[in-house]
C-alpha cells in the first residue's frame, strides 16, 4: 500500500510541476527497490495528464515546459536503471527546426513529450539544412520527421526539404509532419508534407498515427 502511495506521489509531482522534489522522490523509490519500469509508467501517466490539462487550457505553455523540466530531472535519476531497450522503444523520430530558423521552443517541447511517450529522438537542432536530415534518415532509418518552422520567411524551406528527400529517393520511406506559428494543414499539404500538428500534444497524437501507418 505504501509502495503504491509513493508511486502515486511521483505522478502527482509531475502534475503539480514540483521540479524541486522530483529527483529525491524518484531516487528514494528506486532505493526502496521499485521496478524502474513502474516509475517510468507513472511519470508518463503524469505527463499525459499535464497534456490533457494543457489542452483544456487549465495549464499554459510555462506549465507544459515546467512539467517537461520535472520529467527531465526525473529521467536523469531513472535512466541509469533502465535497460537500453526500455528507453525509446516505440521507434525513432527525427526532429529539427528548418534552415534559416533558430527557434527551438516548440521543437523542444515536442521532444520532451515524445520521449515521455516512449520514442527515441534524433534532435538535429535548429537552422537544419536538408542534407543533414537526409544523412540522419540514412543513418537511423527513422520513419517520421517532425519539422518546426516559426518564421514566415522559412516556410519555403519545408518544400526544399521535401524536394531534397525526393531527389535522394527517400520521400516514400518517411512521413513528414510540420508545426509552427505560420503553418496550418493547408500550407503543410501545399509544401508537400504528410501532416500538420497544432501543438506538441497534438503532435504526439499525430505521430502515433503516422508511426502505425
Amino acid at each position: 500500500m505504501v509502495f503504491n502511495l509513493t508511486l502515486n506521489k511521483i505522478k502527482e509531482l509531475i502534475i503539480d510541476l514540483n521540479v524541486d522534489e522530483i529527483k529525491e522522490t524518484v531516487q528514494a523509490e528506486l532505493d526502496a527497490g521499485t521496478d524502474p519500469k513502474q516509475i517510468l509508467q507513472v511519470l508518463t501517466e503524469g505527463m499525459d495528464e499535464v497534456g490533457r490539462l494543457y489542452e483544456r487550457k487549465e495549464y499554459f505553455l510555462t506549465d507544459l515546459i515546467l512539467a517537461g523540466e520535472t520529467m527531465k530531472d526525473a529521467m536523469t535519476v531513472l535512466n541509469p536503471y533502465l535497460k537500453a531497450d526500455e528507453q525509446g522503444n516505440k521507434g525513432k523520430i527525427i526532429c529539427a527546426t528548418v534552415k534559416g530558423d533558430n527557434h527551438d521552443i516548440g521543437k523542444n517541447i515536442l521532444i520532451t513529450m515524445l520521449i515521455s511517450a516512449g520514442y527515441e529522438i534524433i534532435d538535429l537542432g535548429t537552422n537544419c539544412p536538408a542534407n543533414k536530415i537526409i544523412k540522419a534518415i540514412k543513418k537511423t532509418k527513422a520513419k517520421v520527421i517532425a519539422l518546426s518552422c516559426l518564421l514566415t520567411m522559412t516556410i519555403e524551406e519545408i518544400k526544399n526539404i521535401v524536394d531534397a528527400l525526393k531527389s535522394a529517393g527517400l520521400r516514400d520511406k518517411v512521413k513528414i509532419i510540420v508545426g509552427g506559428a505560420p503553418l496550418n494543414m493547408e500550407i503543410a499539404k501545399k509544401m508537400g508534407t504528410d501532416d500538420y500538428a497544432n501543438d506538441a500534444i497534438d503532435g504526439v497524437r499525430h505521430i502515433n498515427i503516422l508511426m502505425e501507418g
Partner: peptide, 9 residues
C-alpha cells in the same frame, strides 16, 4: 523559457 518556467515555481 525553461529557466523562466522553473523560476515561476
Amino acid at each position: 523559457l525553461e529557466n523562466f518556467s522553473r523560476l515561476l515555481a
